[in-house]
Simulated assay, not measured.
Amino acid sequence: MTMVTQRPVAAPPKQTAAPAAPGNRVPRWQIYLPLALYLLFTLVPFYWMLVFAFRPAGSMAIFPWPITLEHFDTVWNGMGFAVFFRNSLMVGVASLVATTVVALAGGYALARYAFRGKGAFMVGMLCTQFIPGALMIIPLFEIFRTLDLTNSLWSLVIAETVFQLPLSLILISGFIRNIPYELEQAAWVDGCSRLRGFLAIVLPLLRPALVAVGSFAFIHSWNNFLFALMFINDQEKFTVPVGLAYNLGENSVDFGALAAGGVVAALPVVIVFAFIQRYLVQGMSAGAVKG
């Protein structure tokens, strides 16, 4: 019996590690420098508005010291800004409620029911977002004149609601599609009607979407200038943007009073965003997901 000697098998050569690729991390200054420039470009006008609003008349100081509230008193009591503020608040709240209620009912129908022409209806709503509001001034004015709604705050509420509905319907319907339909079916099995099941199951889950839709409707109606300028003639029914525009004199401008009015006009929007910012991204992202 012969012994077969096996040659030792050579170990495979060790593979040297490839050199590490250069890091893909972006230097911090390339991120923070553009953000700082954008923030500076955005905040400088607001800073100058605060300077003009709080520094005494005739002062050229860069910092508002000593601080005075005389411009706010002039705007609020002398220029009737309290009436403009009340009118804008009424229009904003009414538009918020009308847009939210109609969008909630329509969005549920679009999300849960299948009907002929549903796709064309959705495309039509999207196409309305490409129409500038200025093109609808004459048709809307004729409609409101026929309905005897000219020079009425209700004309602003109706116009704002109509223009806010397409986007609101899309957001609400997209959000409802993400809510499992089985939750409603379980409520029906337990004896709930469709309305009661909607109120008990679906509505509490729609809080982010409702906050997003309502806040956009309020802010858009609060800032809208064109509709209020064209549909309202009585100074007692002016809104905040139109009131600010009419305070511009022909030969002179009271920059302190105008800046104080701008601060008062921006304050509700800032407060709204401060309280609802955590709901905005969640509501918009959920409504944008295809169900």
Rank of each mutant, 00 (worst) to 15 (best):
A61S: 15
D190I: 04
V211T: 12
A212R: 01
F175D: 04
A159I: 00
W29F: 15
F46L: 09
Y32F: 14
L149Q: 05
V270E: 04
L165T: 00
T2P: 15
I137Q: 02
N151R: 08
A105Y: 14
W29Q: 06
P268L: 04
R278Y: 13
S95G: 00
I137L: 13
R116A: 10
N247E: 06
S193N: 09
P22S: 13
M284G: 07
G119L: 13
A200M: 13
W154T: 13
S173K: 00
F52N: 03
A105F: 15
M125C: 04
K14C: 10
W76L: 13
A286D: 10
D190Q: 07
I67L: 09
I158G: 04
S59F: 05
F52K: 00
G119F: 13
W29V: 09
L135Y: 15
N224S: 10
R194Q: 15
W76H: 05
G119I: 08
F41H: 01
G261L: 05
M230K: 10
L229T: 12
E70G: 12
F218V: 08
Q282H: 11
I137N: 04
Y279H: 14
Q6V: 12
D254R: 06
K14I: 14
W48K: 01
V157P: 02
L229G: 01
V263E: 02
Q277M: 09
L267E: 06
N178K: 02
A288R: 11
V281R: 15
R25E: 12
L258Q: 13
F198V: 01
P241Y: 06
R28F: 10
P166I: 02
R207D: 03
Q277C: 08
G117M: 05
G78W: 01
L89W: 02
T150I: 15
L40S: 11
G174W: 07
V264Q: 03
A105P: 04
F225Q: 11
R7A: 14
W222Q: 03
L205H: 14
L149E: 03
R112W: 10
N77S: 14
A259V: 01
E250K: 13
F85T: 10
M90I: 13
L169K: 12
K118M: 06
W65M: 09
L126S: 02
L165W: 01
F216P: 00
Q277I: 09
W188K: 13
L33G: 03
M122F: 11
G107H: 04
L199Y: 12
Y279D: 15
F163I: 03
P241V: 07
G262V: 02
P268Y: 02
L37S: 02
A111Q: 05
W222D: 08
K290V: 05
I62W: 14
L169C: 08
W65V: 12
A259K: 01
G287H: 05
D190S: 07
M60T: 12
V242C: 06
A200C: 14
M79I: 05
Q164L: 08
I137H: 05
R116Q: 15
